[in-house]
Design a binder for these strands. Structure first.
Lengths: 270, 270
DNA sequence: GCTTGACCCTCCCCTTACTGGAGACCCTAG
DNA sequence: CTAGGGTCTCCAGTAAGGGGAGGGTCAAGC
């Protein structure tokens, strides 16, 4: 019979941890002296502990290990467990690889451009009702003219609007003759009409960034964002959205208090 | 001013998390109504939140992020942070890759041998005093004869002994003329003499496994262990140790109550 | 003006796999 | 017989929030 300190020395596992395993039932001590509560272990329990440590090293939780241990598992069942864990571990490895790639990409961007670069966040946005008009306009920065039309057509329904948004439908960047959709996100559905379309934008996975300030510096944000998309192995999968989260009337191109979010729908090519 | 729910909807970050960030000072709400305690956010804070999320995605802890955020960091400082994180992430990726390899190796072993295979654990063992004799013996299983010599030579010092141990000094497996060292681990240093050497084994990183039962099945344990060492990219880096953790007198080759630990010192080839 | 449902608040407990410490008891060697 | 080290239980804390209770607040519809 070994005292807990001896068992700890043999196994290189801390006394604290052994007590924890005993307490949680993962590895019960072979005997407890009822006089003084001392735990006693058998040398033969070292193989149980080794099994626990090996499974832990494979990435199983203590709870999973406890289940496997008390069930007197066969080689075939063990193989099944390990194959499941293998799949999870592959996924994990892929995630960590992607994370490293994102880090590398950001470092490159900072080194090449000498500035901080925009923070790009990948997120899934829910379905969203929108009231809008879609027209071919001469250039990006003339999109503002469309909002008057929308709000005039909506009339009292304007109260259901949250904030302005633009969608760029051209699959490639175009200087002129831009296929633009402009309108407002809606708190709830409102009737369409008067040339205004009311429809629901689908749920989508978006690479997004926030631009603070003047619209004249928007191209830098687009630059960071689109490079992020390309360098991390995504492709653009739909119209890019611009959300005008803070704006003031009358609209000015160089108001530094404006807040704009750019969203690029993305997908991983198969 | 946005209520916490609005800010949550815009950012896709849960209200709970936003409150947690406020509480911990990571992202304070711009204003708190003193009447009712409601938190209010500005749209401009979205870019702060985006920075937090981007850094979190890179693997920084919230505490690290908080420090970086309140210091008004420059692009160059940010680059330094990211380079440090990059090195950590590379290490992590390597660890996770090794873990997957260990998993693969174990699965292969089970599939090829149709049994559970031994649980191999990598651990670092501390320096250890030993009293021993070293001789060339006809075969492995005749090592038992040496222990009598050692205990006779030690005399009353035997009380400082913990358990018997054998070291195999041959770099390759040998059936005959085995260069063997046999003796006992010591609780403290004792005087040498009478043909017994007392010296200290160095600290070492060991791949280890526990064998329960008859010595006749020890070769299976060696098989699992040495395959593990080879398949996980280690090389043997010193004499293999056998620790006789539970044994009884007289020694029998087929006693199923014996417990033996095999330790292979390993290193990663450069 | 009233009600109702959605929203917001704080406070507490829970998660994993332990680690650290306090205070008390116990064992063994000299 | 004493000193030290070993062991016990209990409590608190970790990172990053999630879940829920209990209670106050706000806005819209009637």
């Amino acid at each position: 019979m070994l005292k807990i300190g001896d068992f700890s020395a043999l196994s290189q596992i801390s006394v604290k941890t052994l007590r924890y395993y005993d307490e949680t039932g993962l590895l019960r001590s072979a005997h407890i002296d009822p006089e003084n509560g001392y735990r006693y272990y058998l040398a033969g329990q070292l193989s149980d502990l080794h099994r626990i440590l090996a499974l832990k090293d494979f990435g199983f939780s203590l709870e999973q290990i406890a289940q496997a241990m008390q069930a007197g598992i066969t080689a075939e069942q063990m193989r099944g467990m390990l194959l499941l864990r293998q799949a999870e571990q592959r996924k994990r490895l892929e995630d960590e690889t992607d994370r490293l790639n994102r880090l590398n990409s950001r470092i490159r961007l900072i080194e090449q451009e000498g500035r901080m670069a925009y923070d790009v966040v990948l997120k899934s946005v829910p379905k969203q009702w929108i009231a809008s008009v879609r027209e071919t306009i001469p250039a990006y920065n003339t999109v503002g003219n469309l909002y008057g039309k929308v709000s005039a057509a909506l009339g009292p329904s304007m109260s259901a609007c949250q904030f302005g948004v633009a969608l760029w439908h051209d699959p490639e960047f175009k200087e002129n003759d831009v296929d633009a959709e402009a309108g407002f996100y809606l708190k709830q559905k409102v009737p369409a009409g008067n040339g205004v379309s009311v429809h629901e934008l689908p749920e989508a996975t978006m690479a997004t960034t926030i631009h603070n300030g003047s619209y004249q510096r928007l191209p830098e944000a687009y630059d960071s964002l689109l490079r992020w998309v390309a360098e991390n192995g995504y492709q653009v999968a739909g119209p890019i959205r611009e959300l005008y989260l803070k704006i003031s009337m009358p609209v000015r191109q160089d108001d530094e208090s404006y807040v704009t979010e750019i969203q690029v729908p993305v997908s991983k090519p198969a």
